[in-house]
Every structure is written in structure tokens, then in C-alpha cells.
């Protein structure tokens, strides 16, 4: 029995050194990490969904989180901007450092930092009673932006960034709900971008969309990563290959492997990762 436990802990140790930082060929260069998650443990009703995950996210890069459903990737993502704890009977321990500052140090910081970490959800959730304009401007009003000109500029800029401006510029007063599903999702991304976040979390942003809308969103992610640190949860491995620079594979609440996307998909070091990316289970 003990031997087994020993073996397991050894494996975990190995795994941790493997996963703490993404492995990279250019190891001489000092990488800059925007967001660092340390020892994140998250649970629902006492059941652990995320077990001590450590992860470092590079600035201005896209990191994809993949894994079979129920592996804890969405829960982990929701810990990164303290969204998980809003769920009833959910708990989180650990640290999330944004530019070295711990989000979990006190409550005030949670609200401050959520502003710096935008989030896009699985299903588009525009505010149904607000117009397109007001949806994008909602966060600006909260944060005390009073100058109408600046607000107009930001709304237009953000809608341009999600390639929605041309489609809606004449209908800004229309309800956000009047848009198609893909447009609604892009509106939600614009709403998240409007508060000028530094990190963008995306929880399967294209899962409810058709291929054309998905393609638009992927193009947009490629454009956005020039300025943002993006973390995207996806169940679609092709999507991870297309949009991400780094990929973390999660399984049963553990981060099994984390490295450059190319390496994870072409040359996985872990057996389970290999099986997953080859499509042997999902």
C-alpha cells in the first residue's frame, strides 16, 4: 500500500515540476507572466472539482485549457476572477496573482480585479432590457466614466474590435437581444473589453455558435492577443490548435500537462494527454 502511495506522490511531484511553468524551447529568455495561479483548490458542496492546480499565464498570449467534460477546466477558469465563489456552497483556496497582487487577499480587491479580468461566458448573456450601446457601456457607467464622448469612443472601439460595429452601427439603440446568437456573443465580448481589462477569460465562447460565427470569434481572438492575455476553455481540440500558443490539459481536477500548444498536440509527454489529444476518450 505504502509503495503505491509513494509512487503516486512521486508522480505528482514530477507532474508539478512539469506543470508549474509551460515548457519552452527558448528557455534562455525570461518570460513575463501576467497571471499566476497557485495551489488552487475549488469545490462544490465539499466535492473537489479542482485539486491544487498551479499555472502561469504569459502576457499577450493565448492559453487554452482542454480536457474532457467534468475535468474542472471551467471551474478553474472561474477561480481566476473569483467568479466561482459566487456559486452557492462553493469554496476556493489558493492564490491568484495578477501582476504579483493576490486577488484573494481581500474582498475589495475582488471587485477591483474583476474589472481587470474580463470574462466571456459559454452562452451569450447580454442584459436583455438594455440597448446594444448600453450593454457595452454598462461597465463604464459602473466605473464612473462620465464623459459621453469618451464613452462613445470606447463603445465604437470595442464593437470594432469584435467586428460588430459595421453590423450594428445604425442600430445602437436596438435591444441587445435582437441580435443573432453569434452577434450576441460578440456583443458580450465587447462588453467585457469596454472596461479595458488586461486579461480575458473565455469559457467555451463558441460552443453555442455556428461555424461561421465561431470562425469570426477565432479571428478576433488572434487579433486580441496582441494586447491581451487570453485564457480560453474549450472542448474543441482543433480550436485550441488554431487559437492558442500554450495549452494546459486537465483531467479529473488535475493539471496533467502544460506546454506549448504545438508540443502538447504533437509530442505530448504524458500518456493520458496523448490519449486525449488522439481522441481516444473525451
Amino acid at each position: 500500500m505504502e509503495e503505491v502511495a509513494d509512487l503516486e506522490s512521486q508522480q505528482v511531484d514530477k507532474m508539478e515540476t512539469l506543470t508549474r511553468t509551460p515548457t519552452t524551447q527558448k528557455s534562455s529568455e525570461e518570460p513575463r507572466y501576467k497571471l499566476i495561479a497557485e495551489d488552487i483548490v475549488a469545490s462544490y458542496n465539499g466535492i473537489q472539482a479542482v485539486k491544487k492546480v498551479n499555472m502561469k499565464f504569459r502576457e499577450k498570449a493565448v492559453t487554452a485549457l482542454i480536457g474532457p467534460s467534468g475535468c474542472g477546466k471551467t471551474t478553474f477558469l472561474r477561480c481566476l476572477n473569483r467568479m466561482h465563489e459566487l456559486t452557492k456552497s462553493a469554496t476556493v483556496t489558493g492564490k491568484v496573482l495578477l501582476d504579483g497582487q493576490d486577488l484573494y487577499s481581500n474582498r475589495e480587491d475582488a471587485i477591483m480585479h474583476r474589472r481587470k479580468i474580463g470574462m466571456v461566458f459559454q452562452k451569450p448573456n447580454p442584459f436583455p432590457t438594455m440597448s446594444i450601446y448600453d450593454n457595452v457601456a454598462a461597465g463604464l457607467k459602473l466605473n464612473g466614466v462620465k464623459d459621453k464622448k469618451v464613452m462613445d469612443q470606447i463603445v465604437q472601439g470595442c464593437l470594432e474590435m469584435v467586428y460588430l460595429w459595421d453590423e450594428v452601427k445604425h442600430d445602437l439603440k436596438k435591444a441587445g437581444m435582437s441580435l443573432s446568437g453569434g452577434q450576441q456573443q460578440r456583443l458580450c465580448i465587447a462588453r467585457a473589453l469596454a472596461i479595458q481589462p488586461e486579461v480575458l477569460l473565455m469559457d467555451e465562447p463558441a460552443s453555442a455558435l455556428d461555424p461561421i460565427a465561431t470562425q469570426k470569434i477565432e479571428e478576433m481572438i488572434n487579433e486580441l492577443k496582441k494586447e491581451y492575455t487570453i485564457i480560453i476553455v474549450t472542448h474543441n481540440m482543433q480550436q485550441a490548435v488554431r487559437v492558442s500558443d500554450y495549452t494546459g490539459f486537465m483531467y479529473l481536477g488535475d493539471l496533467v500537462e502544460f506546454g506549448e500548444t504545438k508540443q502538447i498536440f504533437e509530442n505530448p509527454r504524458n500518456e493520458i494527454t496523448a490519449k486525449y489529444v488522439q481522441g481516444q476518450f473525451g
Binding site: 474583476r114 452562452k123 448573456n125 461597465g139 459602473l142 462588453r191 467585457a192
Partner: peptide, 22 residues
């Protein structure tokens, strides 16, 4: 739906603002 509340939280809203907004 909770997704409405989450949208407001994501923008950095306090509980009261979430209530007003979502």
C-alpha cells in the same frame, strides 16, 4: 438566471449594483 448576475459581477459590480443592473 444566474448568467445575468455573472455578467454584472464580471464588470466589477457590487451586490447592490448587480441587483440594480441584472
Amino acid at each position: 438566471p444566474n448568467s445575468q448576475r455573472e455578467a454584472a459581477y464580471m464588470l466589477g459590480a457590487t451586490k447592490w449594483e448587480v441587483f440594480k443592473m441584472a
